[in-house]
Design a protein around this nucleic acid. Structure first.
Ligand SMILES: NC(=O)c1ccc[n+]([C@@H]2O[C@H](COP(=O)([O-])OP(=O)(O)OC[C@H]3O[C@@H](n4cnc5c(N)ncnc54)[C@H](O)[C@@H]3O)[C@@H](O)[C@H]2O)c1
Ligand SMILES: NC(=O)c1ccc[n+]([C@@H]2O[C@H](COP(=O)([O-])OP(=O)(O)OC[C@H]3O[C@@H](n4cnc5c(N)ncnc54)[C@H](O)[C@@H]3O)[C@@H](O)[C@H]2O)c1
Lengths: 213, 213
DNA sequence: CCATCTTTGTGCACGCGTTCACAAAGACAT
DNA sequence: ATGTCTTTGTGAACGCGTGCACAAAGATGG
């Protein structure tokens, strides 16, 4: 029986072994003292708890550059997610095959959701259409949304939204990058800012939305 | 002079005003007691501290479905990021224009990085090539990496890596989705974990820290 | 100049997640 | 069986972020 110890797993995952054991303990006591955890059983229990043992149909709305890339991505299927439908508002795309699957028109969005029992939707439309698409998805029964559009979606209680904002990912990297540069030339990294030198005009420029919900 | 109080900002952002004030205090104290914060100056200081006032050149390696979509994405430029180069290993792609920019071959990766002073790299290659690409980027001077390949990259100290794993995003949604279903039929046997109280709108936070690869 | 009012900046306490440390459980050898 | 050795499961300590509460700062008006 292939087993792993919490120590091995922790080292591989780069976390503390005690934390890992405590986490596992919330799922029940599946370990064997002096031996470790039965790999197969452990994987099953975790998968079950995370909801990976069932098949989740998802729809992708907005089959443009990003939507098409997502449709072609094979990594979803291997994790228990099945692309049930590709939906786009462009009539020219209707019927056109993407990733071996015909693109369907938004007119049929509601019926597609219902017929396939879809509860997870992916939004890859332009930002301007995102909220509208979101509303239709929710009205049709979708209760989880993965949003790629750079907009904050407002949804009713009970609906989960996760936003993937690549710009923010880059911003976080840039933040640390800036800090590294500052440390070398110990000049003005975390140094308190100078006095308000006539912010009459200010190099504010664009300045992104700083305070989203 | 347009101002905002910490109370107003906190309400808009849905956070505690004391926390907000304390956060601001780490940047220095430039609020005016009895009045609030000068909006323009505040925005500038935050942008500056986050590194948004400077221009960051980035390279994208692996111009396939995803890489091309990223190259075409206009959201980066508006946040201070400039795509300095597109790099791919496929000789057939060399010179071919993507997003109005010629794809360059990996042979020139090092010189491209150096000449453009790039410190942030995006990896959108297949998982198998990711580590190798990563090593070359790092050797060439890149110290921040945004990784889309479903692999854990190992890098030397001082190099930051952020991984965007879309499958995990879906898994998190599915996890909560399963929870919702379980709550309706309360008392579901086999369910050991307690519902994690949905702490506000935290993107993460409420998900078990350790997940199977 | 003094009184009052508003809002900041922060010391302090609380709560929660992480880590430590170890008794107990089980495997395995003798 | 009994002892040794490994690894789990968890109580307790620790650390850190969050929120409370309030003195101080500055504005404002008399
Ligand atoms: N491409 C990227 O790398 C990237 C990165 C981050 C975020 N995003 C965001 O993802 C979204 C899509 O990006 P993209 O590059 O694929 O854009 P795109 O313009 O290539 O594709 C958008 C697609 O959405 C469709 N569409 C428009 N309105 C629709 C509606 N109401 N219902 C259904 N479909 C509709 C269009 O027909 C088009 O096919 C954008 O909001 C973009 O900001 C993209
Ligand atoms: N498409 C998606 O939506 C998606 C989602 C999540 C993750 N990913 C991951 O992102 C990566 C790219 O996905 P994709 O769909 O664009 O794949 P893809 O096959 O369309 O593109 C990969 C590109 O990388 C290039 N490449 C291969 N080896 C290279 C090397 N050593 N150096 C430089 N370039 C190299 C290839 O020539 C190709 O152009 C994959 O690891 C995938 O798992 C993709």
């Amino acid at each position: 029986m292939p087993t792993v110890s919490s120590e091995e797993l922790a080292a591989a995952a780069g976390v503390n072994s005690a934390k890992l054991r405590k986490d596992f303990s919330y799922l029940g006591s599946y370990g064997t003292r002096g031996v470790g955890y039965d790999v197969e059983y452990l994987v099953y229990q975790i998968s079950r708890e995370l909801g990976l043992t069932q098949d989740w149909p998802v729809v992708i709305v907005g089959i443009g550059n990003l939507g098409a890339a997502l449709a072609n991505y094979g990594g979803f299927a291997s994790r228990g997610f099945r692309v049930a439908a590709l939906i786009d508002a462009d009539p020219a795309m209707a019927g056109k095959p993407v990733a071996g699957m015909p693109v369907q028109h938004t007119d049929d969005l509601e019926s597609i959701i219902e017929e396939n029992g879809v509860s997870i939707g992916v939004i890859a439309t332009p930002a301007g259409a995102a909220q509208q698409v979101c509303d239709r998805l929710v009205a049709a029964g979708v209760t989880s949304i993965l949003n790629f559009a750079p907009t904050v979606l407002s949804v009713p209680d009970g609906v989960d939204v996760r936003k993937v904002d690549l710009s923010i990912e880059l911003q976080i990297l840039a933040f640390h990058e800036q800090r590294k540069a500052g440390e070398e030339a110990a000049g003005e990294p975390g140094t308190v800012l100078q006095a308000p030198k006539e912010t009459g005009k200010g190099p504010d420029g664009d300045v992104p939305a700083v305070m989203p919900a």
